[in-house]
């Protein structure tokens, strides 16, 4: 009994530290491990590949982090990606920009829809977005007639494979969006409102904050980001694949957010943590693959990481 009371503060400090910095530590440790034990890890090409592969998850996870910050969840992101993927070939004829804009508008509309269900009707986020998860991919497949469409528009494909200043465009887009998300959370009234709504909804209401507008806003942003991720994934694949694009993306995005230290209970958004969460999961995957551990092991490890991260977060929030 006495030892427990003595050790409790220490343990709390350790858990709190882990929650705050665990993800960075894990990324560093994993990088070091790979530098030492993995052949050909320290190459520009390899880093490019890792970053490009992490980019879509990272973009979706940014939106997810905002939603989770309001104590919500957005399960529809994968389906929104596939809707975006399905729309691209239809409007590519009018130019890549039009195609991208149409896809993003679709994301915004689906976000408006989820936001309306959550904010106006008061439906639990998990259910409101579940319906879109179920129906959204079907809709995408209907739009695409269940077909995989090869894309040949060079300008569009550059989004997925091209470079700008020696950096892959996908990575650049993800980086810019991460910076914007960081600014949004830290520097705008919307961002501060968001955190307040997630932190203490009754207090936010009594403080006269536009709670409903904030809620709708985060789902719109999440939808738009998912659409952008869908467009980029399509460009990288050089094909529109409504059936596969964004499959299980909601899982990866939630994992990245949770591992990055954003608590599921809301009131806090960690943008950099989320980015590193996405990177960490990508690194874990790459490490296992490079050491000839199969996909199956990667999935099981991912499962263990999710449980571990949530367990750590839980200890903190119940205190």
């Amino acid at each position: 009994m006495t030892t427990a009371t003595l050790r409790a503060p220490d343990r709390a400090r350790v858990t709190s530290w882990l929650q705050n910095y665990g993800v960075y530590l894990a990324v560093v440790v994993l990088l070091l491990f790979n530098v030492i034990f993995t052949e050909n890890f320290l190459s520009v090409a390899n880093f490019r590949t890792q970053l490009v592969q992490a980019a879509p998850v990272c973009i979706v996870a940014l939106g997810m982090a905002l939603v989770i910050g309001t104590e919500g969840i957005d399960l529809s992101v994968g389906s929104v990606m596939s809707i975006a993927a399905a729309l691209v070939p239809l409007y590519l004829g009018a130019g890549p920009l039009t195609a991208v804009i149409v896809a993003v508008i679709a994301g915004v509309v689906s976000g408006l829809f989820s936001g309306f269900l959550v904010a106006q009707l008061g439906i639990q986020p998990i259910i409101a977005t579940l319906a879109l998860l179920v129906g959204g991919r079907g809709l995408a497949l209907v739009i695409a007639h269940g077909q995989l469409v090869q894309l040949h528009n060079a300008d569009f494909l550059a989004l997925g494979t091209g470079d700008l200043l020696g950096i892959p465009i996908m990575v650049l887009v993800a980086a810019v969006l991460a910076v914007l998300a960081g600014l949004l959370v830290r520097r705008t009234t919307f961002g501060r409102h968001l955190v307040a709504v997630g932190g203490n909804r009754p207090a936010a209401t009594l403080a006269g904050l536009p709670v409903k507008r904030v809620l709708i806003g985060v789902y719109v942003i999440s939808g738009a980001l998912a659409a952008i991720a869908g467009v980029l994934a399509t460009a990288r694949l050089s094909a529109s694949d409504a059936g596969e694009t964004g499959l299980l993306m909601e899982l990866s995005a939630i994992t990245a957010v949770v591992v990055g230290g954003t608590p599921l209970t809301g009131g806090r958004v960690r943008v950099l943590g989320t980015v590193f969460g996405a990177l960490l999961m990508q690194l874990v995957h790459a490490t296992l693959i490079k050491h000839n551990l199969p996909d199956s092991a990667a999935q099981m490890v991912q499962a263990a990481i999710i449980v571990g991260a949530v367990y750590v977060a839980r200890e903190r929030s119940t205190r």
Partner: peptide, 18 residues
């Protein structure tokens, strides 16, 4: 529950692949 069973979704799929 949703996060725990989400993890076991991955785990079971991983086990199946293994």
């Amino acid at each position: 529950p949703f996060i725990v069973t989400l993890a076991s979704l991955l785990f079971a799929r991983g086990l199946l692949l293994a």
